[in-house]
Design a protein around this nucleic acid. Structure first.
Length: 707
DNA sequence: CATAGCCGCCTTTTT
DNA sequence: GGCGGCTATG
């Protein structure tokens, strides 16, 4: 539909042309549609699907492309559609030798990275105070994204800080290497470096992928840019789509320069601009346009509305965050009552911590919702434990995994034993796992400890033999069951009774997930499963099929659209976030983030802020977001109206409540007033909360509001 | 060696 | 407010 409204020459360019194509397109203009149309057109013109590679920003986006847009039989069959990271994992597994790694590498996530960088800082004998691990990790990550390896950085490091950073970088990298582990940045960097050093591999990939298509190109970093360029260099069949105004991952290394330099890299590139918006009402586009025009470093571009439907834009100011979330929930309830669909409604916020209050409000109002936050499941202790066993089976060098489970559940292998064997491993220069195997030779170890270690090693070896039996590989789900029961973890959790029943449920859910994987994967294997899980992201958990309101961060909202959109917390320090206030470029990125949020809305848009907000346990007076004053005439009216209506009775010190009245409290939630002693400003309300608790509250302090 | 409890630290966004 | 690490105790 959107695509059909392109001019004929644009359609031609998009569909049938070989060679480089740059599609600069605003929100709601059908960018993704361009990609899918082009894939379909290529196949129709005789290109083998097998030779097409489309790269998306999330796994979810890849799935959507496959199922929603290209579901007709044979339309995409065989085409490679995935994220950059997934593609890199496949390439690295195929060409591990050239990349200088082993194919069974582990992928270290943020928490494992944190452990490694901490260790590296410690090994350098630096204080973690002067070299905060999180900062060091950011710095290392930035270097990797720019493809600067340890040696290169050592050479250019010429002052106190950079020299020390170089040592930490080196230490961190050697920890990863010895664990046969790659972090997220390594996946891209190792691939990019390998392609640079092995032209024949590059050529082979170019033959395999005759056509490269990249969505959300504005959010690619330098490493991704190099990879794409390398693979496409032989044929120049590279089509990218993006919108500089929607670049929201600069902090992660995304380089708008990539999209701006496209025409220089590919001089014969055809450039198509799509400025028509098929998604939102003129009002919504007007405030989006007004907002984004405040960004200085930007090529001006307008949003041309094509829709003429009615809708509403509301800017609402609430007293505090409880009132804000409660009101959002009630408005959504109202919308649904009026016939709106829960699936077509979403709430966006800047930071994940804001989801809790919304969740409470949705529960109170009995509105079905989903929080788009998936990695939480894989972050659970019991799940991480199981996964650590699996990782160790696949990759015996994985020290983080080994240390995690060597005494989980407790089997009498404590700190002393571990450090003695660690010392032995260091002296004999063997890896930790092999040191464990030969623990019998460690003099300082007691016989009892040696036996315990031997039992553990025996357990792992037995698992490995069964799970990775080359003749007949075991389904992943079965391996998990084997490990869960055989490790003693199952018994350990059972012994804890009721309080661990959630944990057991979670493990069962993991088994289900693995079983599904066993069913659907092309070539299921334990290694592949683990690597896939590592690349799983929040956005991937968004379920578009159920009737539930979606709650997510603004970052996760990218690429989506909804009839009704609520954006909460428009306060200075939150949006724009306080950590981005130092640099004007960072403020511009926050503005783009807000822009992305606004332009997700098709019909109704509700923007809100609270005058008071509890931050880190402290109730603070807030300042309205400067962005609110950049929304133009449509919004300005709405803001003023609400400021006037603001002296609501909510915090009137002489509030009066009647028995039976429903009220809401910050911490206790919803309740019913049972008794009210009217003593002017010292009035006391006795409230029975839904949790069952009954509280006597002094009205002037309690902050009760009527519902 | 295991466990519980306390203190102090950090605290944006994510592949 | 939440988590990780440390310490004191069993």
């Amino acid at each position: 539909m959107n695509y059909d409204q392109l001019t004929v020459s644009q359609q031609k360019a998009v569909s049938h042309r070989d060679g480089p194509l740059l599609v600069i397109a605003g929100p709601g203009s059908g960018k993704t549609r361009v990609i899918t149309s082009r894939i379909a057109a290529l196949i129709a013109s005789g290109v083998r699907a097998h030779n097409i590679c489309a790269l998306t920003f999330t796994n979810k986006a890849a799935d959507e492309m496959k199922t929603r847009y290209l579901h007709t039989p044979g339309a995409y069959a065989g085409a490679h559609i995935s994220t950059f990271h997934s593609l890199c994992v496949k390439i690295l597994r195929n060409y591990a030798d050239a990349a200088g790694i082993k194919p069974n590498f582990s992928i270290y996530d943020a928490s494992e990275q944190a452990g490694c960088i901490k260790q590296a800082v410690k090994n350098c004998e630096f204080e973690t105070k002067s070299f905060p691990p999180a900062r060091m990790l950011d710095a290392v990550s930035a270097l990797k994204q720019r493809l600067i390896d340890v040696e290169m950085f050592k050479q250019q490091a010429d002052e106190f800080f950079t020299k020390n950073l170089a040592r930490i970088y080196a230490g961190y990298q050697s920890i990863l290497t010895s664990a046969n582990a790659l972090d997220f940045d390594d996946l891209l960097m190792k691939t990019a470096v390998m392609l640079d050093g092995y032209p024949d591999i590059c050529r082979r990939l170019g033959e395999r992928f005759e056509f490269i298509l990249i969505d959300e190109y504005q959010d690619t970093n330098h490493a991704q840019y190099k990879i794409a360029k390398a693979v496409a260099s032989a044929h120049g069949n590279i089509c990218v789509t993006g919108d500089p105004d929607q670049s929201i991952y600069r902090w992660r290394g995304a380089d708008i320069g990539n999209i701006l330099a496209f025409e220089k890299d590919w001089p014969d590139a055809v450039v198509v601009k799509l400025e028509h918006n098929f998604r939102s009402t003129p009002d919504i586009l007007s405030i989006a346009d007004s907002l984004i025009s405040f960004n200085c470093s930007r090529k001006p571009k307008t949003l041309i509305p094509t829709k003429n439907a009615a809708g509403s834009v509301c800017v609402q100011v609430f007293e505090d965050e409880i009132e804000e979330t409660e009101s959002v929930a009630q408005q959504i309830k109202q919308l649904i009552a009026e016939g709106a669909s829960a699936r077509d409604t979403a709430v966006f916020y800047r930071v994940n911590s804001m989801s809790r209050l919304l969740e409470k409000a949705f529960i109170r109002n009995e509105i079905p919702y989903q929080i788009v936050r998936g990695v939480e499941f894989f972050g659970r202790k019991e799940i991480r434990d199981i996964l650590a066993y699996l990782k160790l089976l696949v990759n015996p060098d994985d020290q983080a995994a080994l240390l995690r489970i060597i005494n989980t559940p407790t089997r009498g292998i404590g700190k002393t034993t571990i450090s003695k064997i660690g010392a032995y491993a260091a002296v004999t220069k063997i890896n930790f796992y092999n040191a464990l195997k030969t623990a019998a030779q460690v003099q300082s170890l007691s016989q009892a400890s040696k036996t315990k270690v031997a039992v553990f090693i025996d357990l792992i070896e037995r698992f490995r033999k069964t799970a990775l039996n080359t003749a007949q590989a075991m389904p992943v789900a079965a391996v998990i069951e084997l490990v869960f029961n055989g490790s003693g973890l199952a018994q350990f959790l059972k012994d804890q009774g009721q309080q661990a029943s959630d944990a057991i449920d979670n493990v069962n859910e993991l088994i289900n997930d693995a079983a599904q994987y066993d069913q659907s994967a092309e070539q299921p294997s334990l290694l592949d499963y683990l690597q896939q899980i590592s690349l799983f992201s929040d956005a991937d958990t968004y379920d578009t099929t159920t009737q539930r309101v979606a709650l997510m961060t603004l970052h996760n909202a990218k690429g989506l659209e909804f009839e009704n959109v609520f954006i909460v917390g428009l306060e200075d320090g939150l949006l724009p976030h306080e950590r981005s206030c130092d640099h004007p470029e960072e403020t511009e990125e926050e503005r783009r983030l807000f822009f992305v949020g606004i332009t997700r809305a098709k019909t109704n848009l509700y923007i809100s802020s609270a005058r008071y907000r509890t931050i880190r346990g402290q109730l603070l007076r807030t300042i309205p977001s400067p962005f609110l004053y950049e929304l133009g005439a449509v919004a300005q009216q709405a803001i003023e109206q609400d400021e006037n209506a603001l002296s609501s009775a909510i915090y009137d010190k002489t509030q009066v409540f009647a028995p039976g009245q429903r009220v809401i409290h910050k911490t206790f939630g919803i309740g019913t007033v049972r008794r009210f002693n009217d003593m002017g400003e010292n009035s006391i309300a006795v409230v029975e909360f839904n949790s069952g608790q009954i509280k006597s509250l002094m009205v002037k302090y309690a902050g009760l509001s009527g519902l």
